[in-house]
Amino acid sequence: MPTKPDSQAPQVFPLAYESRLEARPLSQVDLVVIHCTELPDLTTAREYGERVLYPARADGSGGTGNSGHYYIDRDGRCQRYIAPDRIAHHVRGYNPRSIGIELVNAGRWPHWLDSRHQAMEEAYPDAQVDALIALLNALRADLPSLRLIAGHEDLDTAMVPASDDPDILVPRKRDPGPLFPWQRVLDEVRLERMQVGVTPPTPAKLRASGA
């Protein structure tokens, strides 16, 4: 019989561009950001992480893409794509100070910005949440400056035109979404939830402003 994945020990599978990401002292990290992949599986999430979105420049910088540091599959398997001492591109405005953790979850996939498909209905399995809690506690022990936790939706509250109707605004980011068990995580991890914005409203018609 297959053995249960060891969620206590993330497997290290660095992305090809990891060494080109800016280095940072671990003392700079005080925040962890929880995401969901909004993709069907870990294989697809890896493919997205491998995409080079920022072309290489003459000074040797660039040639990188968007990725979290850690990915946790539905069965609790945990993989590390980017080392914590590198700045990954995973959340607008907070990358230099944060670690990104991605939970495999379909979210709004494949109609991310369609106003008719904004529900996030996939629950987070116990094995996945247990692995997340274990990882958070390990990071908390390894990084004395780590004290804050946030959801992607807490930090990126932008509203954008819906893909099906530009007169409707939808949240740019909703992850980890309404089914993420915040209370369970906060009860078991000594981190304070950081919220800089309000929860994005449900899709709504823009008011005619004349502006």
Rank of each mutant, 00 (worst) to 15 (best):
2 P>V: 13
5 P>T: 05
5 P>E: 11
9 A>V: 13
10 P>D: 08
12 V>G: 01
15 L>Y: 01
15 L>F: 02
22 E>T: 14
28 Q>E: 08
34 I>Q: 07
35 H>E: 10
46 R>P: 08
49 G>D: 05
56 A>N: 05
56 A>F: 07
57 R>Q: 15
57 R>N: 14
61 S>A: 09
65 G>V: 04
66 N>G: 00
68 G>L: 01
70 Y>Q: 09
76 G>Q: 08
76 G>W: 12
77 R>Y: 03
77 R>D: 07
82 I>E: 00
90 H>S: 03
91 V>G: 02
94 Y>A: 06
95 N>M: 05
96 P>Q: 10
100 G>V: 03
100 G>N: 11
105 N>A: 09
106 A>S: 14
110 P>R: 11
113 L>I: 03
115 S>L: 05
121 E>N: 15
122 E>D: 14
129 V>D: 04
135 L>K: 11
143 L>T: 08
146 L>P: 07
147 R>G: 00
148 L>T: 00
148 L>H: 06
151 G>D: 09
154 D>C: 02
161 P>G: 12
164 D>P: 05
165 D>T: 09
167 D>S: 11
167 D>V: 04
169 L>R: 10
170 V>K: 09
171 P>Y: 11
174 R>D: 01
176 P>S: 06
182 W>R: 08
183 Q>K: 15
183 Q>H: 14
187 D>S: 15
187 D>A: 15
190 R>V: 04
190 R>N: 09
190 R>M: 04
191 L>A: 01
193 R>W: 00
203 P>H: 09
210 G>L: 10
